[in-house]
């Protein structure tokens, strides 16, 4: 057993828990925040993605005890109050999901990714800040799988949220 303090969506929790508990299981089973999903439980699908201290991570691969003192944001806390986060709005406007199981992880991943900047593995010139075009988005989001294959609309939603495409024109082009 171990004791930890963790802030989740701006609420502080003091918890006693088994050292084997993953952050994902803590969120879902103890705190009843079931937005974060368990897909593969091996860090390969991204459906458990949350933000820890502002960075996107796989909560299935994080031991909860290792998060002592951290700030965690899950899909439930993205908007920070009533209403929706702009990334959530873009996903709805662009119809960026089918079954929705991967969506909470996709949303958290996009919010983290948009804050990251810098080059990616496919950026031609490492000294530049690349434009977030569809290819860059796909590379940067490769840690989030969608079994429904909604990738085309997910990319459109991210382009909208990132401001690289006008919302209406993009939505029309996809339809």
């Amino acid at each position: 057993m171990a004791f930890l303090t963790v802030q989740v969506n701006d609420v502080e929790h003091h918890l006693d828990l088994d050292t084997r508990t993953s952050l994902l299981d803590l969120l879902r089973e103890r705190l009843r925040l079931t937005g974060s999903k368990k897909g593969c439980d091996h860090g390969q699908c991204g459906s458990c993605t949350v933000l820890v201290d502002g960075r996107r991570v796989n909560s299935c691969l994080l031991l909860a005890v290792a998060c002592d003192g951290s700030q965690v944001t899950t899909v439930e806390g993205l908007a920070g109050g009533d209403g929706l986060h702009p990334v959530q709005e873009a996903f709805i406007e662009q119809d960026a999901f089918q079954c929705g199981y991967c969506t909470p992880g996709q949303l958290c991943s996009v919010v983290g990714m948009l804050d990251e900047g810098g080059p990616s593995a496919i950026t031609e010139d490492l000294s530049t800040e690349p434009v977030l075009d569809a290819a860059e988005i796909r590379e940067r989001m490769s840690g989030n799988l969608c079994r429904c294959g909604a990738y085309v609309n997910i990319v459109a939603a991210i382009e909208q949220a990132a401001g690289v495409a006008a919302p209406v024109a993009q939505a029309e082009a996809v339809r």
Binding site: L61, M113, G117, P119, L126, S142, G143, N144
Partner: peptide
């Protein structure tokens, strides 16, 4: 490491190698 300006400029093979590994989430951890 992959995003660091000096590594990108002076050791591009290292920046590229790191950026080509795993996913954005895994690289953050």
């Amino acid at each position: 490491l992959g995003a660091h300006p000096d590594i990108r400029r002076r050791y591009p093979m290292l920046a590229r190698a790191v950026l080509s590994g795993a996913s954005g989430q895994v690289r953050n951890m």
